[in-house]
Design a protein around this nucleic acid. Sequence first.
RNA 1: GCCGGCGUGGCGAAAUGGCAGACGCAAGGGACUUAAAAUCCCUUAUCUCGAGAGGGAUGUGCGGGUUCGAGUCCCGCCGCCGGCACCA
Length: 862
Amino acid sequence: MASQRKQFPFSDFEAKWQSRWLADQAFRARNPADTDFDSAKPKFYVLDMFPYPSGEGLHVGHVEGYTATDIIARYKRMRGFNVLHPMGWDAFGLPAEQFAIKTGQHPRVTTERNIERFRAQLQSIGFSYDWAREFSTTDPDYFRWTQWIFLKLYNSWFNPIARRAEPIETYTGEDADEVRLAYVAEMPVNWCPALGTVLANEEVVDGKSEVGGHPVERRPMRQWMLRITAYAERLIDELDGLDWPEGIKLLQRNWIGRSEGALVKFEIPDFKFEIEVFTTRPDTLFGATYMVISPEHPLVLEITSPDRRADVEAYQKEVGSQSDLERTELSKEKTGVFTGAFAINPVNGEKIPLWIADYVLMGYGTGAIMAVPAHDERDFEFAKKFGLEIRQVVQESNKSADAAEPSPDAAFTGDGIAINSGLLDGLPTPEAKIKIVAWLEQNGLGRGTINYKLRDWLFSRQRYWGEPFPIVWTQGRHSALDEAELPVAQPEMEDFKPTGTPEPPLSKARDWLTYSEQAQRETNTMPQWAGSCWYYLRFCDPRASERFVSADAESYWMAGRAKSDARRGGVDLYVGGTEHAVLHLLYARFWHKVLYDLGYLSTSEPFQRLVNQGIILGPDNQKMSKSRGNVVNPENVIVEYGADSLRLYEMFMGPLEQMKPWSMKGVEGVYRFLGRVWRLAMSETQEGGWAVSPDLAEIELTGSQLRVAHATIKKVTEDIESLAFNTAISQMMIFTNEFVNLRPRPVAGLRILLPLLSPFAPHISEELWERLGERFPGFEGRASSQEWRLHDESFLAVEEVEYGVQVNGKVRDRVRARKDASDAELEESALGAPKAREAIAGKPVSKVIIVRGKLVNIVLAK
RNA sequence: GCCGGCGUGGCGAAAUGGCAGACGCAAGGGACUUAAAAUCCCUUAUCUCGAGAGGGAUGUGCGGGUUCGAGUCCCGCCGCCGGCACCA
């Protein structure tokens, strides 16, 4: 293909337009504080998930989402919006650090080189970013404010009454360190020896690190945590107003994992205390025949009777040595041991045995459960194995009492009618829940509560290439640095390899470590998520030096359409991959809410509308991967077919959100289409160059040409609004096919087409617009700076419409009718159509249904 | 196992409950050309009747249902993809 004659000389003009756009700052967005700011224009903030600039370079998956947002950005500018369309780099991260360790080069060097390459690649596709706003999360001017936000978290607490974050000074309790949104805790964490760092739960997949697939073990370590659990409720509730895919909202809801239930106190008679359990089925309390606590529960050894001690300790040891993967092995049989202790079931005073078992997790609820084997599958399995009593207390509503008598061979976990349950007998499950919770509360034995699966966010990493914490330690106590001391940069180090122990690499920087005679710096760094948690805010005002973003810029760009509801606002359109459905999007929402609570932001949600682009598969319908050798490099596509073809193809492949395979033949198809657009305006000269076509003439568009033109304006406009780019392109193909063979050819067609095409294929549109302007009037300025033209409905009207004639729903014939034909006329002409008459075959017609402009359905009597 | 999403020609796909397959790819035929490339035109869901012109039947994963009318709505399955995974 490369050797073939080019359809159009894209390589002669694509780079030209790219450098003109840069030189002219053509896509510069003005802030309210700028002198040339136009306050009459509405704003539109359209954002991409900024890339990690890896050594691999840009991927076709990046191009997909970035092209979609670029079309929107260019379109909105033409519709008269003040458009913010920025790009930057999420450049802290493990790959750069690991590459640096391997090669001995400083991560800053490789990071800068990768950024150069990414920027050049993005510019070679003609994206209309405001490059004056570019920054990297690794810039000290940026991470200074990342650290500043950390200090805000550190110096705040969540007031459960007001349900929002407040400055720590408003906390009246004894120890502020217990409630800070950023805190230090000794807890079991995911330690990855191969990477030499701890990882967040979210970064561990199947017991292995998400990056690199190295084994991860659990070990207790002292770590920085962020109290995201305080926001669990709001993070769920405030999803409601967002224009996000329902599936993504659901993923977040499930991740946060809200469960309504009750905390119930079980007295341990041999000791002075009670153990509390969380249950979602308090209505089954009468069926609780034993109790299980997690092997890691702090009270285990205290309650264990002397004769059971050896067994219990052995079991704890066994469980402790297991990896997460082994422990959660699904097919695994239930294990556990009896502690020798008993608990009292508060509803009936029964003494029930207290076991430990690894199916009860310390991290969820209270780390203790009441076991109701008749109505919980796990408890059932456990009870069967260890011969514990199974007592039925809920009866399936549609079964008779006798049928429920014999011990069932499976747990019944659905709703039903309470039986064998004293005061609850006869009540349906939902009512039984309410009644028993009220009873527990009256008797001080428990209370209704809501529990969340979400855990606090493990926020420290043992890495070099990340934001250092603005924290110093003095005699074992942490304290915050003053804001004036920011940024805290990493020290220059020769050796930033992991230490092989949980000691972070920064601990090797002796001079840097020493803050003062008494105080030493915190040596952990922040995770990569930190930088991406607020970059969309910085884009509003990337050079702000007095504040993380100036208030006027923030309130302008993040404002919502509906002034009545502060929540509705933020980025107007955010496009990226589903892989960030829970992590980045949850973390960013959390930070945003904290900053909102503290009064720094004007909206409580960062991203009003979210769209996920689908994955692009290799030509073999498999996920692209180096090992499969099916990776398509966008650079090669640009060389062979040009940037416009790449953009257009990725939008033409299918619906944006759908997964779809790559096809080079498909690229050639849109490339040929662009060739036809080119030849609409240009003809080849004797010398093999191109000149404005002599076939072009100032002639009036015919009625049918006007109809196609306005149908195209309408379709393209509507389809851009609904992100249905594939069908917008189809319509422009129809338009082009209509005009390409006309001689003479009305130049007016190009005046309509080129601006429509310019958001999709900006280079060719600008080039043709400019060259046509040398011969014809009406091509002033640039294609991309024309006002977006709207269609005129009157041109779409047709004189005569063809109707399908159905008999009993089957098309038998077709008739033509005047546009304004009456229903009676339509019916008459349909009944008279020869094929229809044949199908009717003299049978009586019971009714006739007319769908204006479409069809007539003749329904025969049965 | 639970929760989502998706099943339409040879392929990517299109279709406010209203004539299924627009647009593109591939394939076949033709025009132009010394020839090729490029370009342009025609055909192309499946089966079937017909010499032909032109008909007929079937068809949106499978089985039911609602409706004058279902790819689209409802119920029950099957398959693929994604997420969660002992969360009490």
